[in-house]
């Protein structure tokens, strides 16, 4: 699943987008890994992440199976607390914490190194700052997978602001049409950037949609920029 590898945007578009995730490898270090995953997220919470998530479960925003129609008047921008996400971990799926500053990420990586869980930890984001932060935290990176961007029938892709939002679900569960609709609703004052980001986030089944970056991108529409 290359769900965090190919996000669309120029380099400056990723200044506030660092996804730190931890996972096991079946048959090698999966025994007893669930408490480590929970500890990873609890440690992350001390460094004020944008959000935390578990793959296939999602993040603090989630769809509901039986909604009360009252919701059209009272929709919250957060459906679950961070603690509820951690409590919900019953399977050893990958978990992630998203940071919007290099400083917070670096401080977190220091603690991750000290904790020595023995599970694989990866950071998806701008490779140069990640390399630098890891070094300062005393970590030598092991491997890198570079995104070479998109090629082929590029004229089938939508416009840049839409792609910047919709590719934050790397599984493509977040439709460009919905991203465009939310950009327009923000431009029209029908939703705040925070509300629109919550709506979009509900479509990311892994919870690695970065609501802070989304709010920033949506705020641009609010100012009459394309």
């Amino acid at each position: 699943m290359t769900n965090t590898l190919h996000r669309y945007g120029p380099p400056e578009s990723f200044r506030d987008d660092f996804i730190v995730f931890i996972r096991n490898s079946k048959g090698r270090n999966d025994v007893g890994s669930i408490p480590k995953l929970k500890e990873f997220l609890r440690t992350a919470l001390r460094h004020r992440p944008v959000t935390i998530s578990q793959y296939r479960f999602g993040s603090t925003v989630r769809p509901a199976e039986h909604l009360n129609p009252r919701i059209h008047w009272t929709r919250p921008v957060q459906d679950l607390t961070a603690e509820q996400i951690i409590e919900a971990i019953t399977k050893d799926h990958t978990v992630a914490a998203i940071f919007d500053t290099q400083e917070a990420m670096e401080a977190f990586l220091r603690e991750v190194k000290a904790a020595d869980w023995g599970l694989s930890v990866n950071v998806a984001g701008l490779t140069a700052p990640v390399h630098a932060c890891a070094k300062r935290a005393g970590i030598v990176r092991h491997s890198v997978e570079y995104s070479l961007g998109f090629q082929g029938a590029l004229d089938r892709l939508p416009e840049r602001p839409v792609l910047e939002l919709s590719t934050m679900c790397g599984h493509s569960m977040l439709s460009p049409n919905l991203a465009r609709k939310m950009l327009e609703w923000v431009r029209e004052g029908r939703r705040t950037p925070e509300q629109a980001a919550a709506t979009l986030g509900r479509f990311c089944s892994c919870g690695i949609f970065n609501p802070a970056r989304a709010v920033r991108l949506l705020e641009a529409a609010q100012g009459g920029n394309r």
Partner: peptide, 29 residues
């Protein structure tokens, strides 16, 4: 603030200013 003019603008330069709740033109764009 009906927003009808927003999709009409070829530059996407019109938006509802949330502070005043009126359609506003980003004059730079």
């Amino acid at each position: 603030a009906c927003s009808n003019c927003i999709p009409v603008c070829p530059m996407g330069a019109i938006y509802i200013d949330p502070a005043v709740n009126r359609a506003t033109v980003n004059l730079d764009e």
